[in-house]
Amino acid sequence: MTDQPEGQRFSQIYARHSDLLPDSPRMRNRVALAIAGVGDSDRLQAFGKRIEREQGILVGRTAYRHDWPPLFKAMALRDVLDAITTVYGGIEHYNSGIQAEQRAQFLETCRRIFLEEQVRYRIDKKGGVHFTVDQQFELLRVTTLSGLGAVRFNGVRSLYDEAFSALDRVPPDGKGALRSAFFATESLFRLIFPSAHQLSSSEVQKHLEPFVNKIYANQKPAINLAQKLVASLKDWIDGAHFYRHEPGAEEPAQPPLELAIYMVSEAGGHLRWLAKLDAMAASS
């Protein structure tokens, strides 16, 4: 995360997938009221003009506290997030100490709102908004959920999204994230192979290996590659089992965060491939 530029607006850094970005009506309302609480009517009007000038949108009247919640409700999400950075830069005072204090208080309020409303954003020390992990990790979530758009995958999609929610907690719940990613993969596997008892190496070998051979029949390089991916899935399953809580056994400790992030990332690849195989089989 240290290589991400600070103090720049969200939309200037990240690819936009507005339909799947974490959003919340309560978050929007609370951020709007946080801005409205920063100053008097002259300052609020100045904030509105600054948003118009910097972000290229028309916002209308902003001089009064009650103007801000409906404004934020109607905004595109990118503009809501950008407005935090824009307003932060617009908090000015002739006393530099007071200015720094007001800016810090505003950012702290917005950070608390993000945390309490469980949206996956963080704010850097210069007012820039970022994803809690990084752009690539959030993009993985978006592309995976997009690939699970069919109604029959609703449960899978929900479980995988829960993995990201677990990583948003303070402290991050890597164990919960890993388990949710595992259950999402198991749910999809059993949708494709209803007779499978569970997601395990033996069940993958029994069901997925012949399935893959059939899908890629007469494509020897593709079969060879696909079987390596099957082997990778087996290894992923075996790794995940270290953090599954078996009845009568001691609850495992939290995994190192970097390993939890890696396992959730790998689950995204497995889910997208399995969903594609399911679609290919249905169309053949």
Rank of each mutant, 00 (worst) to 15 (best):
D82F: 05
A83M: 02
A83Q: 07
T86F: 00
V87P: 01
Y88P: 05
I91N: 06
H93I: 09
A100M: 10
Q102I: 07
Q102L: 14
R103I: 04
A104D: 06
Q105C: 05
F106S: 01
L107V: 06
E108T: 10
R112F: 04
R112Y: 06
F114P: 05
E116T: 03
Q118F: 07
Q118R: 14
R120C: 12
Y121N: 02
I123Y: 05
I123R: 10
I123D: 08
I123T: 07
K125W: 06
K125F: 14
K126E: 01
H130M: 00
F131Q: 01
F131V: 04
Q135C: 02
Q136V: 15
F137G: 06
E138M: 08
E138H: 10
L139S: 15
L140N: 07
L140V: 12
V142E: 00
V142W: 13
V142Q: 08
V142F: 10
V142K: 01
V142T: 09
T143P: 02
T144F: 10
T144K: 02
S146H: 11
G147M: 02
G147I: 01
L148W: 05
G149D: 04
G149T: 11
A150S: 12
A150Y: 15
F153S: 14
V156S: 11
Y160A: 06
D161F: 12
A163V: 11
S165D: 07
A166I: 10
R169F: 03
P171M: 04
K175P: 15
A177R: 13
R179P: 03
